[in-house]
Design a protein around this nucleic acid. Structure first.
Length: 437
RNA sequence: GUGGCUGUGGCUCAGCUGGUAGAGCACUGGGUUGUGGUCCCGGGGGUCGCGGGUUCGAGUCCCGUCAGUCACCCCA
């Protein structure tokens, strides 16, 4: 059989990288729980109509089908792998509304799948770490200010600088409406392309899809120019001379978000009127996060407020959420070798095996160490001690244990060796588990 | 889905205008008789991505295909 080749877009890491990935996920998980978000895991698949109902581009959804299903088989109901965690969560909330307490704050760290052409920092199978707060009927604005603070803590300590760009759909929509545009939503989608196609083409697009006059297009572009790390953006918007009640609402909400961020996550947030986001279910604050110097990688943490994603009859469940692109951040970290791990295996102690007959004794030593939380393995086969030390050295295992009448443990980095009792001996805390840093 | 580039031991790569497949690292055995890392000597491992064509002869040239990769699109 020919050697299997990697599947593009479906990354599989070596143990050292997986340890780094796990430590990043663990760090995020602990922060989420520290802020009182409850864990949830949803199934990998959703009915296709659920996945597609909010205008997602259908071509990126991986569809699930039984190999034996024939064309006429109607029970082959059309399942697709989820492409994010927000849509499944909205479905989950509706399904369990009666058992949940609102406002409900949950986190979810799971794989997602998108059938796009992969490239650096973009995968077809990847981890997202998602927090959302969903309430019943109404959702106070302060949650939109709270979530970025949680994210800032989750990502703190990574050797990367994050900038979260924040805008508010009400602000944009109100402005466009106040400026007299017929189709504010079309204008939002046109402005979303500003970075890619430039102001000239956006102006043309505004005229074409949103029915903007030359002066209106100019006003839209002027709004998109505004950005600030503090509340001063509101005055800049006011200077453009457009007034609309929805605009005022958006300005007030965005000010709350920015000012809260200034206090609890200094340096993270920037109000940026050009952030629009393609998804049409957002109704308030929208977020996109970039790594300083790696803006081309795209957003590594995005989300927003959605008022209409989940509704049941006349009951609505408005929410706000943010998703960390764990795999994408990891891609950047691996790409610049920014993180390393002290060893590629959890094993802290290798028990040397003098002869096969000694295995029962070695197993007892290993059990005694494990009972006290020390990751231990017994050498695979009897061999000269030099070889067994080499075995440990190759794997970065810091300690080799020699059984016998007087048991000894050797730190193979320093060469220090001393008598030790498996019921007593403890390694330095830093050696207990692989350290990521 | 469209276009550019690239496919040679596990890894990084060399291989001339076509002439019988190489190096370093890694692995493994020994020197060193049960305490490693250095050093020295030896060993294993490759359908040259796959299929076809040109040729006396193809890793090398041509066509196709698959995979990887980058860009577009879209997004975490």
């Amino acid at each position: 059989m020919t050697r299997p080749t990697p599947l593009s877009g479906f990354p599989e890491w070596l143990p050292a990288q997986r340890l780094i990935e796990q430590s990043l996920i663990e760090r995020i998980r602990r922060t989420f729980e520290l802020h009182g978000f409850a864990p949830v895991e949803t199934r990998a698949v959703e009915p296709l109509d659920q996945l597609l109902r909010k205008g997602e581009t259908s071509k990126e959804v991986y569809v699930l089908r039984r190999l034996q299903a024939d064309a006429a088989d109607a029970t082959d109901s059309g399942l697709g792998l989820h492409f994010d965690l927000t849509v499944p969560f909205a479905r989950y909330v509706l399904e369990n509304a009666g058992k949940l307490n609102f406002p409900f704050r949950r986190y979810q760290i799971q794989k997602c799948w998108r059938g796009e052409r992969p490239q650096e920092g973009r995968y077809r199978e990847f981890y997202q770490a998602d927090i959302d707060v969903i309430d019943r009927d109404g959702l106070p604005n302060h949650y939109e200010a709270e979530l970025p603070v949680v994210i800032a803590e989750a990502l703190a300590g990574l050797p990367l600088t994050f900038k979260m760009h924040v805008n508010n759909r009400k602000l944009s929509e109100g402005f466009y409406r106040g400026a007299g545009l017929a189709d504010p939503m079309a204008a939002i989608q046109a402005i979303d392309k500003l970075d890619k196609i430039g102001p000239d083409k956006v102006a043309a697009l505004l005229a074409e899809t949103a029915g903007a006059t030359e002066a209106q297009a100019k006003a839209c572009l002027a709004l998109a120019e505004i950005s600030a790390e503090d509340g001063s953006f509101a005055e800049a918007v006011a200077k453009l001379g457009v007034s609309d009640p929805l605009l005022d609402e958006g300005l007030a909400e965005l000010t709350t978000v920015i000012e809260t961020g200034r206090e609890h996550a200094p340096g993270l947030l920037v109000a940026d009127m050009r952030i629009a986001r393609g998804l049409d279910y957002y109704t308030g604050t929208v977020y996109e996060t970039f790594i300083a110097g790696r803006e081309r990688f795209g957003s590594v943490c995005s989300g927003g407020r959605y008022d209409n994603l989940a509704s049941l009859g006349d009951e609505t469940f408005p929410g706000v959420g943010l998703s960390i692109g764990v795999s994408r951040i990891l891609g950047v970290l691996f790409g610049q070798n920014a993180l390393s791990v002290s060893r590629p295996t959890p094993t802290c102690v290798l028990v040397a095996l003098p002869a096969e007959d000694d295995r029962p004794e070695c197993n007892r030593i290993a059990a005694a160490l494990r009972a006290r939380g020390i990751a231990t393995e017994v050498a695979p086969a009897p061999a000269k001690f030099g070889k067994q030390i080499k075995f440990a050295d190759r794997r970065g295992i810091p300690f080799v244990w020699f059984p016998g009448a007087e048991q000894q443990v050797k730190d193979i980095r320093s060469g220090e060796q001393a008598a030790a009792d498996p019921a007593q001996w403890t390694p330095p805390a830093a050696d207990l588990y692989p350290v990521v840093g």
